[in-house]
Amino acid sequence: MTDDLVAFLRARYDEDAEAAKDAAKRAAAELATADRKADRFLPPYDGSHWSNDYDHVHVHDHRPERSRRRVQIADCGHGAIALTSHIARHDPERVLAEVEAKRAIVDQYAEVAENDGANAYEYDRGWVNALRESARLLALPYAAHPDYRDEWRP
């Protein structure tokens, strides 16, 4: 179970990271397009910040040469503030940071699972069980994925 759960989580995190990077590239392309329209030629940028106002999602570039500009990247329709707020809160930078934190937990679990790297003290103190339950909880948001197994449910 351990190897399969670890592999499952790592695959999902790879997918999440790839989607976030794709979104960041799209946002960078939107900034570059806005620069071309304004007759500005600045280097590509992929470390943007996302925000929302009512029914629009914006990407911000805070470098001084861009004058703290923002470019609209999505229009979700009238009154869609909840949707745009959700999109902005899950900007690529945040998603990538969350993926790295979750990977660290999974890596710790993989290291001590099946007693490979765990000692009696770690077992006695519940460290291994806590990491196992954490890994199961981390898999729960992916329960609808076809590779998810019910045996992983906490």
Rank of each mutant, 00 (worst) to 15 (best):
residue 138 L to A: 04
residue 116 D to V: 14
residue 149 R to A: 15
residue 94 R to D: 10
residue 142 Y to N: 03
residue 147 D to T: 05
residue 50 W to S: 01
residue 142 Y to W: 01
residue 103 R to V: 04
residue 59 V to L: 00
residue 62 H to I: 13
residue 44 P to N: 04
residue 77 G to K: 00
residue 134 S to A: 11
residue 106 V to D: 08
residue 58 H to L: 15
residue 131 L to C: 02
residue 95 V to C: 07
residue 78 H to I: 15
residue 88 A to K: 00
residue 83 L to V: 13
residue 101 A to V: 02
residue 128 V to H: 00
residue 101 A to E: 07
residue 86 H to G: 14
residue 134 S to C: 10
residue 148 Y to P: 09
residue 145 H to P: 09
residue 79 G to R: 01
residue 154 P to F: 07
residue 49 H to P: 05
residue 51 S to V: 06
residue 107 D to G: 11
residue 71 V to G: 04
residue 72 Q to S: 14
residue 74 A to G: 08
residue 136 R to C: 08
residue 121 Y to F: 09
residue 97 A to R: 05
residue 80 A to E: 02
residue 152 W to Q: 00
residue 63 R to S: 08
residue 103 R to F: 02
residue 151 E to F: 04
residue 105 I to S: 06
residue 154 P to V: 03
residue 84 T to L: 03
residue 69 R to Y: 10
residue 111 E to L: 12
residue 54 Y to I: 12
residue 86 H to C: 07
residue 72 Q to L: 10
residue 134 S to Q: 09
residue 63 R to L: 04
residue 86 H to R: 08
residue 141 P to M: 05
residue 65 E to W: 04
residue 92 P to V: 02
residue 112 V to K: 06
residue 145 H to A: 11
residue 152 W to D: 02
residue 64 P to L: 06
residue 72 Q to M: 07
residue 83 L to P: 09
residue 110 A to I: 08
residue 92 P to T: 03
residue 121 Y to S: 10
residue 95 V to M: 03
residue 43 P to Q: 06
residue 144 A to G: 15
residue 53 D to L: 14
residue 90 H to W: 11
residue 110 A to F: 13
residue 68 R to W: 10
residue 111 E to F: 15
residue 131 L to K: 01
residue 121 Y to M: 07
residue 44 P to Q: 04
residue 103 R to G: 01
residue 78 H to S: 14
residue 122 E to S: 13
residue 52 N to K: 03
residue 128 V to M: 01
residue 144 A to F: 14
residue 66 R to I: 03
residue 120 A to S: 14
residue 151 E to K: 09
residue 68 R to N: 14
residue 110 A to G: 09
residue 113 A to V: 05
residue 49 H to T: 12
residue 74 A to M: 06
residue 150 D to Y: 15
residue 52 N to L: 06
residue 43 P to N: 05
residue 56 H to N: 07
residue 108 Q to E: 15
residue 51 S to Y: 02
